[in-house]
Amino acid sequence: MMLLRGFLWLLGFQLLGHAVVELLSLPISHAMAGLLLLLAWLLVNRRLNESVATASQALLPLLAMLIMPGVVGVFFVFDEFAGHWTAIMLALVIGTFLSVLTTLWLMRRFMPSEAGSPHERDRRP
């Protein structure tokens, strides 16, 4: 019952997100709005409802399986984007290289050093 109750909560927030997005014509997806509303609700309440925790533990490991039918489509769009694959691959490779470089550089600049933080250093495996 805990799982069902939690699932109903999640659906409720998704529908609430749906209503907010449509009423205010926001440029975000319904589920994304539901996520933000649930997060706001949790932050205001400062307490994680046990049924919501149960349902999210059940659903989150399924995410990879749930996106897989979309991934299958990759094998059916080769012709649709013929002629653009060089641009796509170069954009992915060079773009990812540059963005990883930028992130590491920015973080090294702005992150306080580890000694000053409350987090323990991981032990080497």
Partner: peptide, 18 residues
């Protein structure tokens, strides 16, 4: 099946809250 993607996305708020 992929209808579940909606509530699963909303559930991402939980690890973020934690």
């Amino acid at each position: 099946l992929t209808l579940l993607l909606g509530p699963a996305t909303v559930a991402l708020a939980v690890p973020l809250y934690q």
